[in-house]
């Protein structure tokens, strides 16, 4: 295990921003795992820390396949994480909209360029990521349809769902989109939380990465490919059924990500915040699995309250 500083930017009145990677093995650039690109991705940082710890144990036990270099970058943005800010704290730009970066450009373009210079050329890339909507996901792998993807590879994470999404114009600045442009098989692994640690889903994310590594020949021995026995369901993002709120108020969810629901099941109640009367009951329009749930106890009108993976 080696810790290397990949990129540094000096700051006024603060210590320099260092982006550190932790590397295992030597040889072909096999797998890179990137954690918190944003300052609120505490769960993603935690998953990486647990991954590093467990990789160290496997390295000491001689279980890493020879000729493979595996890198983990737990935190790209301590500058913002230490302030409790999601985006680059100086100008509120999102590093994950700046890839592949520009070494002569603005600060976050330089950070993206400096990082991407190290991340290019890996055979596989995993980003532990979060979503701009406040809510919980059922664990899944998301792949952007950017022309260089293999859905079948994603099966070996052993997570229950693999979602293929079409890139919007702003997605063209993400790490995963650009990994694909430069011929890395890129996967986004979503776990349950973002700013809070959820140990069970973090453990599952670490297991998923080990399962993937075992399936691709990066790990030797038994025990790390168990998850791959579960064949995940593939679906396109556009096939998700969205349940929108129409009323604002106090939001009391009755179902959560991962739950199975039947058509007509109550999903959440929205109460008048002053008198406590029910303003709206949200129900499942289709039977399926809850993929996403709004996690705040306040909701506005026209917010995405739930997304459901409908039964086939």
């Amino acid at each position: 295990m080696q810790r290397e500083t990949l990129f540094t930017i000096n700051t006024i009145y603060r210590e320099p921003l260092h982006i550190d990677g932790i590397f295992f093995g030597e040889g072909e650039k096999a797998l890179a795992v990137v954690g918190a690109l944003r300052g609120n991705e505490v769960q993603q940082l935690y998953i990486c820390s647990q991954l590093v710890k467990a990789l160290g144990e496997r390295e000491r036990a001689g279980r890493l396949a020879p000729g493979c270099r595996v890198g983990v970058i737990p935190c790209v943005n301590p500058f913002s994480m230490n302030l409790g800010k999601r985006f680059w704290a100086a100008d509120n730009t999102d590093i994950n909209r700046m890839f592949p970066g520009y070494a002569q450009g603005e600060t976050t373009q330089r950070i993206a360029a400096g990082l991407f210079a190290h991340l290019r050329g890996y055979k596989y890339g995993v980003q532990l990521t979060s979503f701009h909507l406040s809510g919980d996901f059922t664990p899944h792998v998301r792949i952007i349809d950017a022309g260089y993807h293999d859905l079948g590879l994603a099966d070996s994470f052993g997570l229950p769902f693999v979602m293929l999404g079409k890139p919007s114009p702003i997605d063209t600045g993400t790490l995963n989109y650009n990994w694909q442009v430069f011929e890395t098989n890129a996967f986004s692994v979503y776990s349950k939380e973002t700013s809070q640690i959820h140990e069970e889903s973090a453990r599952r994310a670490v297991e998923a990465i080990f399962s993937f590594m075992a399936a691709q020949g990066m790990l030797r021995g038994v025990g790390d490919a168990d998850g791959a026995r579960q064949r995940p369901r593939h679906f396109h993002e556009e096939n998700l059924v969205t349940v929108l709120s129409s009323q604002g108020g106090i939001f009391l969810p009755r179902r959560a990500a991962g739950d199975r629901v039947e058509a007509g099941d109550a999903l959440a109640d929205t109460l008048d915040p002053y008198v406590g009367e029910m303003k709206e009951r949200l129900t499942a329009p289709r039977a399926g699995i809850v993929f996403f749930n709004h996690d705040s106890n306040l909701v506005g009108g026209h917010e995405v309250a739930f997304r459901i993976i409908p039964d086939l």
């Binding site: 129409s246 009323q247 604002g248 108020g249 106090i250 939001f251 915040p273 002053y274 306040l298 909701v299 506005g300 009108g301 026209h302 917010e303």
Partner: peptide, 11 residues
């Protein structure tokens, strides 16, 4: 417009 959670609409 869209309702905000507590006694207001965004217009």
């Amino acid at each position: 417009s869209a309702q905000l959670p507590v006694g207001e609409s965004l217009r």
